[in-house]
Design a protein around this nucleic acid. Structure first.
Lengths: 188, 188
DNA sequence: CCCGCCCGACCGTCCAGACGGTCTTGCCAA
DNA sequence: TTGGCAAGACCGTCTGGACGGTCGGGCGGG
């Protein structure tokens, strides 16, 4: 039974991965149940066995994305020294530190966010809640609220610009932006 | 003949307005030719007379949006005093100064951006070009590049968070964020 | 034997786009 | 001035295809 559960989990995850791949490679409009099933190496009926509707698929996609986001962000928080501006510094690092698996993380987040929002804006409510959580943390960060939220906005901008493929800073520019924002992440 | 041209223009604009309304009120998924035509008070055939395909409609939507964006931004630039940090200050004002018709502008931009990107990510290429133009201007703004791009990222974040309905600062917080960013918009 | 996972054919719906038609408008020749 | 002609604006219908979701069945492990 445990084995079965693991197998099921794997198939579910494979389907979610496949959905993200479809969106990343062919755009939101191409995300159909058939395309997802094909990309996951599963029949359409098989997909619908795991996710009873497209909405259920997108909901799961968003939930996984939020969990990943929360875990990643919290890791950055605990990597920062305690004291005023800790969360602000974590935001900066989260948005601007490139790590091997973070590229794919960004693609995941973008795919989930865009496809869910396109189908029904209400589906990204968990993302809004997570953003509110971070906002609350950053508001009690021991910084002047203007500075703290400016840092958050910048982190949002870096990430969301990537979501739309608008822009992404190269390595050296990222370091310079980081330095500039670090100035805001201290009680100026 | 002139009269005819003006009439045509009006209908085209009405259709574009209608498309934005549909997206704003019912989401990207509800943006069909039929729904747009109905919202514009025009038959489907009439709509297709003005826009030969859905893609043509979305292209026009994006073009109008970019023109509006460019005009609005340039107005903010010329409202700022010359000298280092002018474009950075314009970015801040553009993102954080609420004006009566700017709410609707944001809705327009969001609708055009989301619907075009959902249909085909390549359609928002004009937006990418406009963003690149602003980026170029801000890079030659007489500020350290890190500071300039940090301001740009913050402005992007404020706007794009609004696009997804993630967050929007209230009046007093907006003033505080503005003050914090203004610190970056001067040669620190 | 049976249960859960998975298959794939099938159905109803919706939509993009094509098409043929109608009506208004401007233009020109008589 | 007027009759008629050509063009453009707009309409209503149709169709082919894609998509979400259903259903009955097969298959393998327990």
């Amino acid at each position: 039974m445990l084995h079965q559960t693991i197998e099921t989990r794997d198939t579910r995850e494979r389907i979610l991965d496949a959905a993200e791949s479809v969106v990343a490679e062919r755009g939101v409009a191409a995300l159909s149940l058939e395309a997802t099933a094909a990309a996951a190496g599963v029949s359409k009926g098989g997909l619908l066995h795991h996710f009873r509707s497209k909405e259920a698929l997108l909901t799961a996609l968003v939930e996984r994305m939020v969990a990943e986001m929360r875990a990643g962000y919290d890791a950055f928080v605990s990597a920062e020294a305690e004291g005023p501006g800790r969360h602000a510094r974590a935001c900066i690092a989260w948005a601007l530190r490139p790590s091997p698996q973070q590229r794919s993380r960004d693609l995941r987040l973008a795919a989930a966010l865009l496809s869910a929002h396109a189908h029904d804006p209400g589906l990204i409510e968990p993302v809004r809640r997570e953003h509110a959580r971070i906002r609350a943390a950053i508001a009690n960060d021991g910084l002047p609220p203007g500075q703290a939220h400016a840092v958050l906005a910048a982190a949002d901008g870096i990430f969301l610009a990537k979501v739309f493929g608008l822009w992404s800073p190269d390595e050296t520019l990222a370091r310079e932006i980081e330095a500039a924002l670090a100035c805001l992440a201290r009680p100026c």
